[in-house]
């Protein structure tokens, strides 16, 4: 079953618009679609589709707790802790700075007296919804928590467990903006990456970054030009970068006020205005995705 990652470098280029509407369009064509919202900082797919999700998992992380009875104050835990979440003070119990803890358990591994136990901290949640023929799985980082990667990995793992229970024809992953590790976890191993961009210097600059990343990850990539007819836009620059990286532009989504209304009303474009230019663009895109992703899966 093919997996498509929707990404794009810059924030707000239309990743979620493309992911949610492609999922909806494919589901309308009769495919069983699994949509994973991997932007755990700002998961928005459910808002774009107008569905409410339910919490299915709490994402917990290891957080050390020191047993004062057992601790010999040797300082090995603080030495092993690379983010310096544990600090050794001569003759005292180690000091803990929970916000720096990565949950790696190195402290527990080195403690010679088994004085470290797990006090567990809540990092976020995995949420789920079934609607429009789509199964939506979303990771949600708890505000004030920094460690988003573990929330993302948990959401991806939960999605994999669903796939073993039920067969899907297509998985679509909506990634976070940027080129950091969360984006990599979401793109890696995909059969196709869609790089969503806009015809502005910022869109062009960040498109190049994401194309370098997908090349590094060896994931076949296609460009989606969103707001293609933006007044004052520079679509020729997008074309130049895409062709320099031998990447096709598979769809151009017009700057259609109906797309904005669909965000405000929380309805997919195809439901709100099935005969609009934007809806037509999403149908073209969905067909291209199906073809490219299936070919990618076949080649792999």
């Amino acid at each position: 079953m093919p997996r498509v990652a929707v990404t794009g470098g810059k924030g707000g280029t239309g990743k979620t618009t493309v992911a949610a509407n492609t999922a909806y369009t494919l589901a309308q064509m009769g495919l069983r679609v699994l949509l994973i919202d991997a932007d755990v900082d700002a998961p928005s797919s459910s808002r774009f589709l107008g569905v409410s999700t339910a919490r299915v998992l709490d994402v917990m992380s290891f957080l050390p707790a020191v047993d004062p009875e057992k601790c010999t104050m040797c300082g090995l835990c603080a030495q092993a802790c690379r983010p310096h979440a544990l600090v050794h003070v001569e003759g005292k119990l180690p000091m803990l700075f929970p916000e720096l803890c990565s949950g790696c358990e190195a402290c527990k591994l080195v403690c010679p007296s088994n004085a470290i136990t797990d006090s567990q901290k809540l990092l976020g949640w995995v949420n789920k919804a079934e609607a429009h023929g789509i199964t939506l799985v979303e990771g949600e980082l708890q505000p004030t928590e920094a460690r988003s990667t573990l929330v993302l990995l948990k959401a991806m793992e939960y999605a994999r467990s669903l796939k073993s229970e039920r067969s899907y024809d297509m998985t679509i992953v909506d990634t976070a903006p940027g080129t950091h590790c969360n984006v990599i976890h979401a793109i890696r191993g995909a059969d196709l990456a869609l790089a969503v961009t806009e015809p502005t210097p910022l869109g062009v600059h960040d498109l190049e970054l994401i194309l370098k990343l997908t090349q590094k990850l060896q994931v076949r990539t296609a460009v989606v030009l969103n707001r293609a007819d933006l007044p004052g836009g520079t679509p020729e620059e997008v074309e130049r970068i895409a062709s320099r990286h031998h990447t096709p532009i598979v769809a151009e989504i017009p700057l259609d006020p109906l797309v904005q209304s669909s965000h405000i009303q929380g309805k997919p474009v195809l439901e709100l205005a099935p005969s609009s230019r934007a809806a037509e663009a999403f149908r073209t895109l969905a067909k291209a995705v199906l073809e490219l992703a299936s070919a990618g899966a076949f080649l792999a």
Partner: peptide, 13 residues
């Protein structure tokens, strides 16, 4: 390398 956080847990065990 892209996923490694460098926490060192592997080197400890």
């Amino acid at each position: 390398r892209l996923a490694c956080e460098g926490c060192g847990a592997c080197s400890i065990v």
